[in-house]
Amino acid sequence: MDLLAEIVTGVINGDDERIAQLTQAVIEQGVSPKSILDDGLIAGMNVVGERFKAHTIFLPDVLLAAKAMYAGLDLLKPLLIKEGIPPMGRVVIGSVRGDLHDIGKNLVGIMLKGAGFEIIDLGNDVPPEAMVESAVRNEATVIGMSALLTTTMPVMGQVVQLLSQEGLTGKIKTIVGGAPVSGEFAREIGADAYGFDAANAVDRVKSLINVV
């Protein structure tokens, strides 16, 4: 149990080498992969998310924490698959067509992974068709879209419309975010949710697929 607490601290401190060692150690001790994930890596990222939300830490700290989390997750993943433990949900994310900004989108991806979701990151400048196609093919339940430019925001509405045309409304939920995006805009285009920052996006995705 002590080692799990150390994993939590290691993730918070962004110590990736230590996390790899610790994760290997608890695996060898026979701690269940699910517990290592939930009580170690995700617990650590939860603290990071809370602190980020409170502005007591900043993007660099989150990025380092995520790096540490991945160091553990890489070791854990084969075991989780072997035991048939499904991810909390699969989320396709991307910056919309015409938008090459990805810091915000990457941060949301990190936070969602940190919360136990499986992320399919399509990068930036992603056409609406590619988002929907990827979500269907990967059986994702949520599409997360980011835009930094006011001029690319309308593309988010196109994704929502495309889902509707394909009869996927409600089956694949949408969440939007980015500096110029607002809750009002999300409602206007018919998106299912708006995340005002990365931590909030995680909460909103959880409520979209009823995991709280």
Binding site: A54, H55, T56, I57, F58, L59, P60, D61, I103
Partner: peptide, 11 residues
Amino acid sequence: ATPNGFFTIMG
């Protein structure tokens, strides 16, 4: 603007 003052995204 944050509750703790002005910081860039990178802190």
